[in-house]
């Protein structure tokens, strides 16, 4: 059986169920790299120039962890999934970058996804990807339909039950029966929205278990995935008119939404050196200072980020929010 490696980084959190279904339908075995560790991050960083952004370094660490454990590694180049909205260059160059800096990696399966080139082009790209595993176009077609269905289910599960991507992925793969986030809701002191790309929010090594820490401090945590596409898009339309980046909803859309409703505080998470985020998070920050309604804090993550620094800032932010809530209650009484 052909083993296909999928790194647990970058777009994994958005598309894993879809990719897994696709490859499994075509009779391959999917191997996922283990959760990020310091060793993986260090080995990834050692391959690229220092200015490369943290998520890409993490990604390369995952590729290195997969070397020798699979026959192919799947690295898509996602250029555009919406008409005239483009992705960051790092995503576009990902397969080539991986080949260049990790020459020992198994052959890379790449696929160019560009909606602007039309449906025909997209279908051809999918078929070419499937060709590595089967010669029958119909099987590829069936597999891609099943994959698309898996993708829709995945997103539906997240937005309807308020689950985070890792929780849903655990459910789908049946490793653990994740409980819906309701146990601590009754005792929640405040609702904190965390916005940013999934590869930062759910990689516990990179963000020093930020979500876990927030929950332990008795806060209800909201993430961008818990909003429906319509909510995100209308928030974007209100703030910037039209999205410019492929994953703008997660930052600008969710930020604009939570700043106006549903959260006591918003934490924006960005990676140091991230091109799109430097622009998008600033749009959210400006909006926060204009509205003056919901406190906003942005945390920049990089490989040197010390845990203590994050914890201190988090505690200060939470203290401020809790105090603010108490004083609001008093004035109401």
């Amino acid at each position: 059986m052909i083993r296909i490696g999928i790194p647990r980084a970058l777009l994994y959190y958005q598309y894993y169920p879809m990719w897994k279904t696709f490859f499994e339908e075509l009779g391959a075995e999917v191997v996922v790299s283990p959760p990020t560790t310091q060793v993986m991050l260090a080995s990834g960083s050692s391959r690229v120039v220092a200015d490369t952004c943290l998520p890409v370094k993490v990604f390369l660490g995952h590729i290195l962890a997969l070397v020798g454990k699979c026959d192919y590694i799947f690295v898509p180049a996602i250029r555009s999934v919406e008409s005239k909205v483009y992705n960051c260059s790092k995503f576009l160059g990902l397969p080539d970058l991986t080949r260049a800096v990790i020459p020992e990696s198994p052959p890379i399966l790449d696929i160019d996804i560009d909606i602007n080139k039309g449906k025909r082009n997209l279908y051809q790209a999918i078929y070419q990807l499937g060709r590595h595993l089967t010669w029958y176009p119909l099987r590829v077609r069936r597999a891609s339909q099943a994959a698309w269905q898996a993708h829709l289910n995945y997103h539906q599960l997240m937005s309807s039950r308020n689950l985070t991507p890792p929780q849903v992925i655990e459910r789908i793969s049946g490793t653990a029966e994740a409980e819906a986030n309701s146990s601590y809701l009754i005792s929640a002191q405040a609702t904190i929205a965390v916005i940013g790309h999934p590869y930062l929010l759910y990689d516990e090594h990179v963000n020093h278990r930020l979500i876990h820490r927030l929950e332990q401090a008795h806060n209800r945590v909201l993430t961008p995935e818990m909003l429906s596409t319509e909510e995100l898009q209308s928030a974007i339309a209100r703030l910037v008119g039209r999205a410019y980046w492929t994953y703008e909803e997660e930052v600008v859309g969710a930020g604009a939404h939570y700043l106006q409703s549903g959260a006591d505080g918003v934490i924006g998470i960005i990676a140091f050196g991230c091109g799109p985020d430097s622009v998008m998070m600033d749009v959210v920050r400006q909006q926060a200072s204009r509205l003056k309604a919901t406190p906003f804090m942005s945390l920049t993550l990089e490989e040197h980020t010390a845990e203590a620094g994050i914890v201190t800032r988090l505690e200060a932010f939470l203290d401020m929010i809790h105090r603010r809530k108490r004083s609001q209650v008093k004035t109401c009484v």
């Binding site: 690229v48 120039v49 200015d51 490369t52 952004c53 960051c88 260059s89 790092k90 576009l92 160059g93 080539d96 970058l97 080949r99 260049a100 800096v101 020459p103 050196g273 091109g275 799109p276 430097s278």
Partner: peptide, 16 residues
Amino acid sequence: PFTCMPEITAQNIMPS
């Protein structure tokens, strides 16, 4: 430019 996304990718690929 510092933090330029395309050029960093290029810079990483150039040595190979």
